[in-house]
Every structure is written in structure tokens, then in C-alpha cells.
Amino acid sequence: MSAVREIEYRDALREAMSEEMRRDKRVFLLGEEVAEYNGAYKISRGMLEEFGARRVIDTPISESGFAGLAIGAAMMGLKPVVEFMSWSFSLVAADPILNNAPKMLYMSGGQFGCPVVFRGNDGAGGQLGSTHSWCVEGLFSNVPGIKIAIPSNPYDAKGLLKTAIRGSDPVFFLESERMLGNKGEVPEEEYLIPFGQAKVIRSGTDCTLASWGRPVHFCMEAAEEMQKLGISCEVIDLRTVRPLDIGTVVRSVKKTGACVVVDQSWSFGSPGSEVASQVHRHCFDDLDNYVHRVHSADVPTPYATNLEQEYLPNARKIAEAVRSATYNL
């Protein structure tokens, strides 16, 4: 059996978009620098050449305008993919992405859906300072009517993005500038990954680590460290937070009796607090300790390297939480 090829996260994203654009003419890409510049992060490299300027569209720096334009086009039955150079910039498009896209189907009594995908870099880690380091899942997961995918690796990035584009509902697709160069196995043949299906990426017996996006990697580091101490961690990559596959987490916690949720967004009213709440509800009699949570520190994102690293969830903080959650072992 031949080895599966390895490609970068950014290549996986491009493959997903390109394959869907070849398959369906309704799909087009728009955003800042996506065409002639080949993408600010080279995700759309070569796509202008293949699909032409009618389908790979450079926009001005005008998030509210082009996000709203994409929603109008989606109401007409098209399937736009909107690249936000950073999700931090989506805040100036809050009205279209939060008031229009998620509510159109409901407010119109089922007449007009918005099959649009908004995607871009999310989260801190590149010394970008506070304004460019948003983890928008903390804000946006509160809103009904949108689906939110936060893939942690190239395989998931491709499979989930294809599902997002092919679907009929608005999707916020949260990538990470820190992971775009990460390599991973991605098969040549086509595959899609359904939303709402978490993946157990490391089996264990003593403590469940539930996370999504970049912190999944920190969980794996922490799990390695814990193994040295004889504590066996099960790591679950939720992959989408809306829908949220709480079932996989619950099944794991019923086995391990301990749970640590790791979420890069701020702790107050976050996807992490939601997961913890649901685990408490479903595993009330199974838990040996309360569900621990590791988040970014409750401060604006700092610039200095040491401060930023301490601000983020990291393997040390996760390990500490695991030790505390499994104090009885």
C-alpha cells in the first residue's frame, strides 16, 4: 500500500475550494487579495489562473460591503466563499454576518436561505497584538443559525470545508494562521467530513481532554507528558462547535470520570463553558471532579512573546488542569 501523501493545511483548504468550484459553478471565492496577490496567506494560490476573475474576486478592504454582497448573492441561490484575511476583521461586518446570514431563513419563514461560507484566520499566536488576535468562536457560537467548524489539521480542513461549501446553511470556518504550514496526510481521493462528528484522536482511560482547532495540538503535548506520570488521557477533537458532538465527549467522560475542556477563546460565556455545562448535565454521576477548563487569559491579547505564550492555552496549563481534575488518582 502506497503512503498517503502529505500536504500543508493551506493546500488542503485550496484543494477543497478548487474541487468544489470545479464541481459547481455557483461556487465562487471573494475577499481581499485572493486573486492577483494569490491570497494574503497563499491559500488561493493559482486559483485565479484556473477559474478566472469572474469566480476568484479581489475585493476592496470593505468587509461589511463584500460580506453583505455575498449574502445577497447566496439569497439568489449562489454559493459564495468569503475569505476574511483575519476573523478579527469580521467585526466590522458584524451586521451582515450576524444579523443577515443566520436569520434570513427564519425571518423569511423558510423562503430564503444563505448558503455562504465565511472563512479565515482565527486566534492569536503570531504576536499580532490584541486587535488581530480574535478568537471569534467565543462571540459567534452564541448565535443560532450558523454552523462553526474549527479544524485542527489538513485532513479535517479539507473534508470539513467541502462539506461547508456543499451545504445549504451559513458556515463560519475558522482556520489558524499558525497552522497553515502544518503538514498532514490527505488522500488524493475525494472525501467529505460531516459536521457534528467529533474524533477521538488519542485513547485513554483516566481523563478526557476535549478541544478544537489549534489547542488540540497542545492537548496532545500535555497527554504525552501526563503519560509519563502514568495518567492516561483521551483526547477528543470536536472539529465543529456548532453542531457540537457532545455525545462523543459524554461517552468518553463516562469511561474516564474526569474532563478538561481546552478552548482558545475567553472563558466567560464561551464554547468551552457550554461543553463543560453539558458534560456536567450528562455526566453528573460519573464525574470524580468538576469539569476543568483551560482558556486564553481574561485579558486583551498581549504582544510580547512571553506574555502571549502565557496568555494562550498551552501544554503546561493543560497538564496542570489534568492533574487537578484527576487529583484522586
Partner: peptide, 13 residues
């Protein structure tokens, strides 16, 4: 912006 998008959509189709 939605109005621009509707017209963009018509033209694209």
C-alpha cells in the same frame, strides 16, 4: 450590500 449582492447574483447566474 444585500442589494448589490442580489444584482451581482443575477449577473453571475
Amino acid at each position: 450590500p444585500l442589494g448589490a449582492g442580489l444584482a451581482f447574483g443575477c449577473k453571475y447566474i
